[in-house]
Every structure is written in C-alpha cells, then in structure tokens.
C-alpha cells in the first residue's frame, strides 16, 4: 500500500515539476533573450517578472479558439495533444536521483518507472512527438503549416538516426539499457583517479553529436525548421490559437527539459555528485537539476546566438556528417570494447 502511495506521489511530484519547469523555462527564455540583447525582459508581473508564466497561461485561456475553414477538425484538435503528451511521457524513466527510501525491502528509485528498456522507451516515445507536428501542419489546411510539418518530419528522421546510434554506443559501453544503471555505473568508478567516470569523457564525440541532435530533435534553433518564423510565418502552429497553441508550446518546452535530463543522465552521470558517491538523494537531485538546467540554458543561449541553418544544409549535415560520425563512433566503441 505504501509502495503504491509512494508511486502515486512520485508521479504527481515529477509531473507537476516537469510542467512547472516548462513554465519557468518560458520565462527563462524571455529573460535570457532579453539579457543577451541588452534588454531587461519581462518585469511587470511579480518581482522580476517571476509570475509572467502564470499571466501568460491565464491569457491563453481567454484567447479565442479558432479553427480555420477547411481544417480537418478532429486531427486539428488531436495534434496539440499528440505533441504534448509524448514529451511529458518520456520523463517517466528519467532517474532524477538515486534510491530515495526502502519500503519493505523494495528500494524506491528516483524515477517513476525503473524499467530495463529505458533508453529504447525514451527514443520510442519522443519519436512520437513528431506526429503531433505533422498532423497539426496537415490538418490546418494552410501551406505554411504543411511545409512546417513536412520539414519537421524529415528533420526528425534524419537526426533521430544519429541520436539512436550515439545512445547505442553508450548502451554498448554500459551493457544495459536501464537509465538508472547507466547512471550508477558512471557514479561508481573514477577516471584516471581524478575525473568522475562520466560518459562525456569516454564519449566526447558522442556527447557533441548527441547535444546537437537534441537541438534538431526538439526543433530548436538553429534547426527550428518546423516553425521557421521568417519563411513559414509560424510553421506548423500558424493556425493555432488559445490553449491549443499553448499545448504545442508546453510540449516543446517539456521535450527540451526531457532532452536536457536525458543528456545529463547519459553523459554527465545523472544525479552523481563528483567525489561524493554516498551523497544523500536530495543532494543528488539538486546536482541533477543543476546539470539539466545547464543544458536548458544552453538551448536558450544557442537560440539567441546562432542564425537558422538553410534547409538543405540541415539535411546535408544530418546525413553526410552526423550519420557517418555516429556510425564511426559506434564502430570505434565496439572495437575498443572487444579488445
């Protein structure tokens, strides 16, 4: 019974944390962009504008729900849900911290679901997110939306491939697909005696590839061809308004957060604190949040620094550079492991 209770509690806390983190990220996005552009950013709602996401949310509720003429109604309504739900589902397997407590001899882990196919689960579910974008683009009955959706799908396929190959080399190194075990292994040893044994030191190329692929995977700058304001007005969400648009928005930020968490888990030792293997679970959680927050900041930082790629450059980069590099990475990893 208490196990069940603990499980429900974890689900509620992690889900609420994810959604509120998405809200905070929207504020961070605006604040960081303002700082980079020598502005102050939102500062009217609450001290330093901290209540801005709340005000935005309330505003979204009161906006008109608009469904364009000729839109496929059902798919148009379904698409935002399909975009947001997979992004929120993937968070289930992320091990936010180590063992929180032990109830009746069963350890309660820091993830909602401690499953053995965590890595596959993440890729499978986050890959579904593109359906929301494609359907939203197609159902809108608008040329801009359709082009945005098409681009998103082509981009997702190209970059998911390299991403999976990078995860494959991590899995080959760790010998497990359970994300918690991957974290534990990085926490257990040390590299050359002074570095933590994080995968980022074993797989530097894989790390770089993975981070860039997460940018493409979440449709963020410099690969935001699904939105592409300057060419496609708003891309797949051109015709969306009100909470439907907000769902796309939340979905995008949730996907970014999950990808940050995944990068942290796979490459930066998750909840591991350097040189303190027996850190209590809340310290581990704090370490995890700090590491993930860095990647969130990186997402925003890059967005306000780099111009958008050209579409053909994006595809060329994905297929001619990233795929061979990722393949080579898997090959070399395999070679070293077999020696």
């Amino acid at each position: 019974m208490s196990l069940f209770l603990a499980q429900v509690l974890k689900v509620v806390v992690i889900f609420a944390g994810l959604v509120s983190a998405a809200g905070v990220s929207t504020l961070a996005e605006r604040k960081v962009s303002a700082w980079i552009q020598l502005r102050l950013g939102p500062n009217r709602v609450g001290p330093f504008g901290v209540l801005q996401p709340l005000a935005d949310g309330i505003k979204f509720f009161f906006k008109e729900e608009f469904i364009p003429q000729g839109a496929t109604r059902w798919l148009f309504l379904l698409a935002p849900m399909l975009a947001a739900i997979p992004a929120m589902m993937t968070v289930a397997v992320i091990p936010f911290t180590g063992v929180i407590a032990t109830v009746d001899g069963t350890p309660i882990y820091g993830s909602i679901a401690d499953i053995d196919i965590g890595a596959i689960y993440v890729m499978a579910i986050s890959g579904l997110g593109v359906y929301g974008i494609i359907l939203g683009g197609w159902a809108s009955n608008s040329k801009y939306s359709l082009l945005g959706g098409l681009r998103a799908s082509a981009q997702m396929i190209s970059y998911e491939l390299s991403m999976i190959l990078v995860i494959l080399s991590i899995v080959a190194m760790s010998g497990t697909m359970n994300l918690r075990e991957i974290t534990d292994q990085q926490n257990a040893n040390s590299l050359l005696g002074f570095l933590p044994a994080w995968n980022v030191f074993y797989q530097p190329l894989g790390f770089v590839l993975f981070v860039i692929c997460t940018f493409a995977e979440t449709n963020r700058h410099p690969f935001d061809f699904a939105e592409c304001e300057s060419e496609l007005v708003g891309g797949f969400h051109t015709e969306y308004s009100s909470m439907k648009f907000a769902l796309f928005f939340i979905g995008e930020y949730c996907a970014m957060i999950v990808m940050s968490c995944l990068t942290t888990t796979l490459f930066l030792g998750g909840a591991a604190v350097p040189f303190w293997a027996e850190a209590p679970w809340f310290v581990g959680l704090a370490a995890f949040v700090v590491k993930a927050a860095f990647f969130m900041f990186l997402f925003i930082w890059v967005r306000w620094s780099l111009p958008r790629f050209r579409y053909d450059q994006l595809m060329a980069l994905g297929w001619k550079v990233f795929l061979p590099l990722a393949l080579a990475n898997v090959f070399v990893t395999g070679l070293v492991l077999s020696l």
Binding site: V32, I36, L38, W301
Partner: peptide, 19 residues
C-alpha cells in the same frame, strides 16, 4: 566558431543595461 559566437552573447549578458 559557434563557441566564439556563444562567448560573445554570454559576455553581453553581463553588460550594464541602459534601459
């Protein structure tokens, strides 16, 4: 070059605002 660009924007974050 990306890192160079990022370092520029990072430095701009700490410049005093004229607003």
């Amino acid at each position: 070059e990306i890192l160079r660009g990022l370092s520029i924007t990072l430095r701009k974050m700490f410049v005093k605002r004229a607003t």
